[in-house]
Simulated assay, not measured.
Amino acid sequence: MSAEQPVLVGIDGSRDGLIALGWAAAYATLRQARLHAVYVLDDQPQLPTSTRPTGPDDGSEVLEDALQELERIGFTTASLEVRHGHPAKILLELSERAQALVVGRRGMGGFAELVLGSTSQACTALSTKVPLVVVPDTWDPAAPAHRRIVVGVDGSLEGQDALRFGFELADATNAELVGVHAVEIRESYPDPSVWTDPSRPPWADATDELLARTLDDWQAKYPEVVVDHRAVADHPVRVLAHESELADLVVVGGLGHTAFSELRLGSVARGLLHHSHCPVAVIHHS
């Protein structure tokens, strides 16, 4: 990842697109990188006939709105352009020459899926080259930062890329990093009434070892980062969604597939996109 590569953000004329633009501008400032905003005119729009624009769309209004938003937040060095084609495909092609891709959770394409915009889901499933950040419409850039970055920890080799991204960002923003592991409750676990220590569940030793083994090396590389960790017995999506309420970013690993199918997106990442209260970074392992 080169500092000369831009932070790429998809805009679409929606409020969600402007929110994503704001997050991308802040990230570009942090990375001392250029910001490149792209509006893709879909050759086959999915909007219902009654909601389609009555006149030709050359993208000028969308770019003007984006420029006004960038001026409002004091970021005036971005480049903007209009492309034609499938939004997800175009953004993914351009992301090969970027250091991060940022999209809104919903937008004009949100009619395809009422809860999650089809473009953001397709991009998240397929982006294997660079970090992909999906910004929900609930993110408020004016709210005080929590200075807390949550990383989903599962002990896998693929999860190391997500930890690297989380630690780098925590170090750059003076944020606490919280490693969270969701515990799958096995039927073989005894009833809590027969635990040797009622305050310590039977899986605690294994999860403590996993979290220490996973986080200690990264903490040694980033000694200035304050690190916390916890294991919670619940579904990973519910655990991370709950953690997102008091986080600036949740970082999870994805699947390194390239086939054009939303099924290639890991179930945890896909579920979290629906429910997270803060931006989600999906880091694919190639």
Rank of each mutant, 00 (worst) to 15 (best):
M1P: 02
V9T: 01
D12A: 09
G13E: 08
S14G: 10
S14D: 05
R15C: 02
D16L: 00
R31D: 10
R34M: 06
L35T: 11
L35R: 11
A37Q: 00
Y39G: 02
V40H: 04
V40T: 11
L41R: 15
Q44W: 12
T49D: 07
T54M: 13
G55Y: 00
D57T: 13
D58S: 04
G59K: 12
E71A: 15
G74V: 10
S79D: 14
E81S: 12
E81H: 06
R83Y: 02
G85H: 07
G85E: 09
H86A: 13
P87G: 11
I90N: 08
L94T: 11
L94K: 15
S95K: 05
E96T: 13
A98L: 02
A98Y: 02
V102E: 06
R106C: 08
R106W: 00
G110E: 11
F111D: 09
E113G: 14
L116M: 14
S120F: 08
S120D: 11
A122F: 09
T124K: 01
T128G: 14
K129C: 10
V134K: 06
P136Y: 08
T138D: 10
D140A: 03
R147C: 00
S156Q: 02
E158L: 09
G159Q: 07
D161G: 04
E168L: 10
D171T: 01
T173L: 13
N174Y: 03
V180M: 06
V180P: 05
V183D: 12
V183L: 12
P190V: 13
P190C: 08
P190I: 00
S193N: 09
W195K: 07
P198W: 15
P198K: 15
R200N: 08
P201Y: 12
P202T: 12
D205G: 03
A206L: 04
R213Y: 10
L215C: 07
D216N: 14
D216W: 04
Y222C: 10
Y222E: 05
P223F: 14
V227Q: 07
D228C: 10
D228L: 13
R230P: 01
A231D: 15
A231C: 09
A241L: 08
H242W: 07
E243W: 04
E243P: 08
S244E: 06
E245C: 06
L246E: 13
G256W: 03
H257D: 00
E262A: 11
R264E: 13
A269D: 01
H275Q: 14
H277P: 01
P279V: 12
P279K: 02
V280D: 13
V280E: 08
V282S: 06
I283T: 04
H285G: 14
S286Q: 07
S286V: 08
